[in-house]
Design a protein around this nucleic acid. Structure first.
Length: 680
DNA sequence: TTAGTATTCCTTTTT
DNA sequence: GGAATACTAA
């Protein structure tokens, strides 16, 4: 690719932008000198703008765009910043190394894989694949089937992943977090070892490896560390409060080896990823770790009304740790946040829907409103009501696009072409064949693994011999399909490869095995269109799995003309804003979540999640809670307790409302049974 | 060994 | 009320 450098970086125009679009504190942060800088940016304080301008500023000062690493929390955030940067400085914006830790790690590891015992075409395991390999590893270590007390695979997965992210041993982490598993600690170590062997043999890395192996590369290969130090003269880390030990070690090590320029941006009060190893101290102790670091405070909130900001401050003041907050709204007065109680979850859903419809009638676009919840599950009743009322919405939580079974199947086809040793993908495809269970699949994979070229071995008579008579026909079809797939040159034409899958026996399998097969096949057709935009299979697969914010076809093929209400977990809503934000289910056990309270610091973490949620609102904030919820399976409703996060805030800072049913109970029942029952 | 059925378990957040 | 696991029949 030819690189074109713009001769006249419009430094003067940039200066104008600085004057016009930045306040004094922001400008100071943007133009901070080299070295270690910490920018503490409250919600709505123009954080994205500051980061974008700082990158533009660096480039205008002569730093090559390609030597800047900009780590963001999601791919979406990276994309947004690069786009904004492009309007400031033009095409050079695309040379910045912008992305998540995992994404950048992936890019760097492709080159260095051989040093670490992997091949450059390694595939990335999502958490389901990871679980699949982990089950096998548990068998290897003779852990499963030894009685009921053995921890479940998902639990082991969680422990292993957490240990990896905090850079500690599994046994240690297990002893601390799950003391009841103490006797299993030695086994867990064995499993961890067996799992590493499995991944290595299958040439696969899981999410954690993208960080761990990157860390290993830098630690064990000093020349690699030097190299990255030279590559990245400036490192900017967004959402510093959500980084974990491994991530911080990586970027600080690169900065130290290189030019020593690291700018961290974040807000300690928005640290909400402790469950995956995020360590709050990374931001709180930044100055201790880097004596002489400059600290910038951005405390002016341009997003929310004074009423919302006052509520926010009153809430977060109950947290015992963190920097003191001086957030001030720069906007004119608005209305008080509204706290609404409803009889039950259905009343709550009806209320939210009616509010939304009212506002739409008054001219507010649906896209300007969002329903944010603590738990994805809390959205189910709402979705039912939205569907019943024909309110178009998009969901940004729950199953992601690529996590749906049929998409995973298609991905498995693509992945074995990209990396023929990918055990999880082979197993997935083999298990689709009638008459093939775990044992046969394992035997076939073992055969493939022994061969230099697994894709040829699958066609051998030896493979066929492993199958029972009734499966041979299906297997032959599968092998023929694979051959056709490979004939499409999938490496550089992934779209065509998916086309081949659509013409293979796979659609029949979909019809046989899955519900609503036509929708699924239509999904795959859309997937093919998306893939057409790629000229590298490896990139397509990595992009999908690392995208993070892709939750459906809506987001994959954005139809700009459609005006959709947003439903999202608060976690997914980070960094976004809406005119009106609704937060339902603000009751104890749900928000704060029950399980979180057992952990030390859990309540504070939940309060930070609450903080992130309420600070998404620009003009209006509506919190609601049902007075009763069903308990367990289909037990009767039990009374709920409104969340402590409501009880602890001064009543003067919000307005209360109560929903009264206009009609009798009988009429209500008739209405709700028709409209409210979710079918998803 | 697979596939279908009964049972138990556990309820979060994501790259 | 759904998914993972255990059990059972073919």
């Amino acid at each position: 690719m030819r690189k074109i450098r713009l001769k006249s970086t419009p430094a003067s125009r940039l200066g104008e932008h600085f004057e016009r679009e930045l306040n004094e504190a922001q400008r100071a942060a943007v133009t901070a000198p080299d070295g270690y800088n910490l920018i503490l940016a409250g919600p709505g304080s123009g954080k994205t703008r500051v980061i974008t301008f700082r990158v533009a500023y660096l480039i205008a000062s002569g730093v090559p765009a390609g030597s800047i690493m900009l780590v963001t929390f999601t791919r979406r955030a990276a994309r947004e910043m690069v786009n904004r940067l492009e309007t400031l400085i033009g095409e050079q914006a695309n040379h910045v190394w912008a992305g998540t830790f995992h994404h950048i790690g992936n890019r760097l590891l492709r080159r260095a894989a051989p040093l670490l015992g992997f091949q450059p075409n390694f595939t990335i395991l999502d958490s389901e694949d990871q679980l699949d390999l982990l089950r096998l590893a548990m068998d290897d270590a003779e852990m499963s089937g030894t009685g009921k007390m053995a921890p479940r695979p998902a639990e082991v997965q969680h422990l292993l992943s957490f240990a990896a992210n905090v850079d500690r041993g599994v046994a240690e982490v297990a002893a601390e977090r799950r003391p009841e598993l103490l006797e299993w600690a030695p086994k867990l170590v064995d499993v961890a070892g067996a799992y590493v062997v499995r991944k290595r043999a299958a040439n696969c890395m899981d999410y954690d490896d993208l960080l761990l192996q990157w860390g290993r590369l830098i630690r064990e290969f000093p020349d690699q560390r030097e190299l990255q130090g030279r590559m990245f003269r400036h490192l900017l880390i967004d959402e510093m409060q959500d980084t974990n030990a491994v991530q911080v070690a990586v970027v600080e090590s690169i900065a130290e080896a290189g030019a020593g320029n690291l700018t961290a941006v974040g807000d300690d009060a928005q640290s909400i990823y402790r469950f995956r190893g995020a360590n709050y101290d990374n931001i709180l102790r930044f100055a201790e770790r880097h004596p002489g670091a400059r600290i910038f405070h951005l405390d002016t909130n341009y997003r929310s009304t004074p009423q919302i900001v006052a509520f926010t401050r009153a809430s977060i003041a109950h947290n015992r740790t963190g920097f003191p907050k001086e957030l001030v709204s720069a906007r004119p007065d608005g209305v008080l946040p509204l706290v609404v109680s409803a009889e039950d979850a259905y009343d709550e859903a009806v209320f939210v829907c009616e509010q939304i419809l009212d506002e739409r009638d008054r001219g507010r676009a649906l896209g300007q409103m969002a329903i944010l919840y603590r738990n994805h599950h809390d959205s189910i009743v709402l979705q039912g009501e939205l569907l019943a009322r024909g309110i178009p919405y998009t969901v940004r939580s729950g199953l992601r696009f690529f996590e749906q079974a049929h998409i995973k199947d298609v991905l498995a086809f693509l992945r074995i072409v990209a990396n023929p040793r990918d055990e999880a993908s082979w197993r997935r495809l083999l298990l689709l064949l009638p008459g093939v269970g775990p044992a046969k699949a394992a035997a076939i994979y073992e055969l493939l693994a022994r061969h230099e070229r697994p894709l040829e071995a699958i066609e051998s008579a030896e493979a066929m011999a492993l199958l029972p008579a009734k499966s041979k026909g299906f297997f032959a079809g599968f092998v023929a399909d694979l051959r056709k797939l490979r004939a499409t040159d999938p490496e550089s034409h992934p779209g065509a490869a998916i086309g081949a899958i659509l013409r293979s026996g796979y659609p029949d399998t979909v019809r046989l095995k899955y519900e609503r097969p036509d929708n699924r096949i239509a999904d795959i057709e859309q997937f093919a269109l998306l893939a057409d935009r790629y000229d590298s299979l490896q990139r397509l697969v990595a992009d999908l799995i690392l995208a993070g914010d892709v939750y459906g076809m809506d987001s994959l093929a954005p139809d700009e003309t459609r005006d959709l209400l947003v439903l999202s977990t608060i976690h997914q809503a980070k960094g976004l804003e809406w005119m009106h934000v609704f937060i339902p289910r603000v009751v104890e056990d749900s928000f704060p979540h029950r399980r979180s309270l057992d952990e030390p610091g859990g309540e504070d973490e939940e309060r930070r999640i609450f903080y992130v949620g309420i600070t998404r609102a620009m003009n209006e904030l509506t919190l609601s809670y049902p007075l009763s919820l069903p308990r367990g399976a289909r037990g009767p409703n039990v009374f709920t307790t409104p969340s402590r996060f409501l009880a602890e805030v001064d009543e003067a800072l919000f307005e209360r409302a109560e929903i009264v049913s206009g009609t009798g109970a009988g009429a209500d029942d008739a209405w709700f049974s028709g409209a409210g029952r979710p079918t998803i």
